[in-house]
């Protein structure tokens, strides 16, 4: 008894006869929707304003040349859209698919009961989340051969496939964090109920826990898709023939005139914006919808 009183004297009661209200721990913080929140905050009139300012600025540089520059862009636009931008979209979709698969596996290692596996998972996650994307791209580009020999058949490994792999790595690490956060947001009582019904850990995870939290993973997952899509122009540095590479080549073909810079790069900006803005709006809306429901 004396020791009890001592401990209480220090203002830290270790035992009590009364019902104790445990501190309320908030659900683990999900990945914040940094990019999409910011994007979704942009209003349509702000975009319109920008669209107005752009030609005016260009006009100030000299009306005649802008006229011809826009005409040049008009000539190139279908090619840039179909061969350039759609390729970026393809890269982003494939990277996301690969990144999601790897990310779920990595996320499961983060909640593993076997500490060596958890340690490996944590290390990998921390590494790929914090490494600069461009560095990862270069590492994959240089570390992977240009072709693979699988069962005697040679499979070429072009640069854009390596870009898909390189971009999927940081995405996977961030998805792993999302998966872990979502799983931990399900009350532990659900695990106990499943345990009492003799479910194994894997059965509990796949049949009881994950179905309950899959909705919560969707908004942060979409946020990372938007971030990934915006990062795809990085591939141009690896020589992948995507939007930015093709734009540069088109401008070179037109004699590298400085007045081409604004309309051509502006066109890239507009396309990425048109693609990512609805995703961002939808993400923020889903986030609000799922926020208070389990």
């Amino acid at each position: 008894m004396a020791s009890d009183i001592d401990k209480r004297g220090q203002g830290y009661p270790r035992r009590s006869d009364m019902a104790v209200l445990l501190p309320l721990r908030p659900a683990p913080q999900m990945d914040s929707l940094s990019l999409t929140t910011w994007l979704a905050k942009i209003r349509w009139w702000q975009v319109m304003l920008l669209m107005l300012v752009w030609p005016l600025h260009a006009f100030a540089q000299g009306a005649v040349t802008v006229d011809s520059a826009v005409a040049v862009l008009y000539k190139w636009a279908p090619f840039l859209l179909l061969h350039g931008f759609l390729f970026n979209v393809l890269i982003s979709i494939l990277s996301m698919a690969l990144g999601t698969g790897l990310g779920v596996l990595l996320g499961l290692t983060l909640i593993s009961k076997w500490s060596p596996l958890r340690f490996l998972g944590n290390t990998g996650t921390a590494f790929f989340r914090n490494a600069p994307w461009l560095v990862l791209l270069f590492v994959v580009l240089l570390a992977f051969p240009f072709e693979l020999t699988i069962f005697g058949t040679r499979v070429p490994l072009p640069g854009w496939i390596k870009a898909v792999i390189g971009l999927s790595l940081p995405v996977a690490a961030n998805i792993a964090i999302i998966v872990r956060g979502a799983i931990q947001s399900v009350p532990s009582a659900q695990w106990e109920a499943a345990e009492s019904l003799s479910f194994s850990r894997m059965q509990t995870l796949w049949q009881i826990i994950i179905p309950q939290c899959i909705k919560r993973m969707i908004p942060p997952w979409m946020n990372w898709y938007a971030i990934l899509t915006m990062a795809t122009p990085l591939c141009s540095i690896l020589g992948t023939e995507e939007m930015v590479t093709l734009t540069r080549q088109a401008m070179e073909a037109e004699g590298n005139k400085p007045e081409l810079l604004m309309p051509f790069y502006g066109f890239i900006l507009v396309l990425f914006f048109l693609y990512c803005y609805p995703i961002a709006k939808l993400t923020v809306r889903l986030e609000r919808k799922f926020a208070f429901k389990l």
């Binding site: 009582a189 659900q190 109920a193 009881i208 389990l294």
Partner: peptide, 8 residues
Amino acid sequence: FQQYNLFP
């Protein structure tokens, strides 16, 4: 359990 813990 006290809180039922049904699978929602």
